[in-house]
Design a protein around this nucleic acid. Structure first.
Lengths: 146, 146
DNA sequence: TATTGTTATACTCTATAACTATA
DNA sequence: TATAGTTATAGAGTATAACAATA
């Protein structure tokens, strides 16, 4: 498809978007069917993992949901044992939500499952292709962070 | 992060998954806020675009929703003019749902918006980096198809 | 009798509005 | 009085169950 001589940035944007979205879709589909945790739950756990303990209000802002919704989400995840609740040291109104070891294990388990599928696919490539993908990963991560 | 000497397929799977999921998330977030079409609607339009005309039952199977849900989804998209309805040539029970020019335009518009953001980012890279991403796109697309 | 699509109804998730407690 | 979190209630989206039409 890509004609080297005239390959524009716009064409690359098209091809790369297609590639990334297709792979992301594949990776997303690999969720355990019997799993009761919702995608929002996993997203909250992931946020807690990356950001550290947060208040419900901060979590709501991160996840782009309203505070009452986060109240429910946190309650559900607490009853599953994925997060714990602690009083704020100085402000009695606020609460600190932390990722529990169980929640951390769930997150790692999910990631491992997706990576297992991907690793199998990658094993079918040549060493050169894998090295190219490694460098592409670095570039993409830089791109997304900027 | 990647140590070249010991960089395993598993490590590549980890880095690539992270890169792809982060970029996909960015691309997904770029939806028009004021847009009334839901993500499911876009997904159905996309399926019709890739697969050609389908019956409601086939669409439900593709989108992993139940037939009654697809009835509603198709009705909503028909009222928006994104799809059209035609009788099945031989089976009077079935209906053929097709993507309308308006629906096709909507899909292309969405894709163009995401690509504009990405093209801007890609413009900040070096020519070598863009070329590497082009080759990575090809590899990823092959990977996903296999 | 089996199958395709639809209608009736219920459940889940998230939102807005009102309430309670603390700053 | 302003803010953080919760409770009450409503709306969007999808599911199961029952139904009508055709194979």
């Amino acid at each position: 498809m890509p004609r080297l001589a005239t390959y524009s940035t716009a064409a690359l944007a098209h091809d790369l978007r297609l590639a990334v979205m297709r792979m992301a879709r594949q990776l997303r589909v690999l969720r355990r069917a019997e799993e009761s945790t919702t995608l929002t739950h996993l997203s909250v756990l992931s946020t807690l993992s990356r950001q550290g303990p947060l208040t419900p209000g901060e979590l709501a802002a991160f996840e782009k949901v309203r505070p009452p919704s986060m109240t429910r989400i946190v309650a559900a995840m607490e009853s599953c044992g994925y997060v714990t609740r602690a009083p704020h040291p100085t402000d009695g109104r606020q609460i600190i939500i932390s990722l529990s070891p169980t929640g951390k294990a769930l997150l790692e388990d999910e990631a491992r499952m997706r990576e297992a599928w991907l690793a199998k696919k990658l094993g079918e490539l040549s060493k050169e292709e894998r090295d190219l993908l490694r460098r592409a990963s670095e570039i993409i991560n830089r791109l997304v962070e900027s």
